[in-house]
Design a protein around this nucleic acid. Structure first.
Lengths: 144, 144
DNA sequence: TTCATATAGTACTATATTAGTACTATATGA
DNA sequence: TCATATAGTACTAATATAGTACTATATGAA
């Protein structure tokens, strides 16, 4: 598998929707309707995204949420980080001290390398490029 | 997070241990002792790896497991696939028909692209390179 | 000032996944 | 024949995820 959670997935759908008109303020209800997800779920995610500084919120009538930064400056890596914590393919690849095998483990460094490559791939995809794929040579412009 | 399961992680530790002497036959007990994990857990993983064709097993006295292929030919992508199913960062990035938003989803193709990049990174790391990191320019030899 | 609107925060429940363990069956070789 | 070692299955406990409900607070317009 190696999967992000459903909620994080939804989060990227919400943000991509907002990136269509980056300056506009969207209410939770409007977003829920646009992307056909339950209001409660959309609402929960918007609160999290707002608390993490990815959105700017405004209460009351005409209130809602808008992107705190241009879509070019918000990466998938950041969204994942905000909604489910730092990218860490293995327990040991992000922070040390969690695995008892650490000291004797022969493969930890290499897992950290893999983690780095994955992180960089996620870092390179912005909300903007989610909506307007660059279509460059080599998907995501990464040459392998 | 974006994490593989603990069991899959253990699986790579087991296989890396076996890759040190690829021709040798290891009993489950010997491996459990070498990598300091419970025999029951190691045993469970060895059965799964064997059933998937990554190992060759032999019962009885002097029995045990050995790698079915040279360490160069076993990739992390394959190990993950065997122990926790195909790499699929989002529900929709591997197989279609699971998400109701699919038809209208603006970002599915791009998630599939991200998935592809991650898969290729995992494909490029073999048991051999886990133990003997290539140390090439750009981690894993992938230029970004 | 009042009130409908909209977000803020929190807590809770249900579900699904993961991890760990136990038990029985079967094959091997000395 | 028997100790050794894998094969298969099923079960339990722990953890993580998803979804929902409820109360509090801020805003702007009638």
């Amino acid at each position: 598998m190696l999967r992000i959670s459903k909620l994080t997935d939804y989060g990227t759908v919400i943000l991509a929707q907002m990136a269509r008109e980056p300056a506009r303020t969207y209410s939770a209800a409007a977003l829920a309707q646009a992307i056909e997800l339950p209001l409660s779920t959309v609402s929960k995610l918007l609160k999290l995204l707002n608390r993490s500084g990815l959105l700017i919120s405004c209460r009351g009538k005409q209130g809602g949420y808008r992107l705190a930064k241009p879509p070019q400056q918000i990466s998938l890596a950041r969204v994942i980080d905000v909604l489910e914590g730092p990218v860490a393919v293995t327990e040991c690849s992000q922070r040390s001290g969690l695995c008892q095998l650490e000291a004797r483990c022969a493969i930890r460094r290499q897992w950290q390398g893999v983690n780095g490559v994955i992180y960089q791939a996620l870092e390179r995809v912005s909300l903007d490029s989610l909506l307007n794929p660059p279509e460059a040579s080599g998907m995501l412009g990464i040459k392998i």
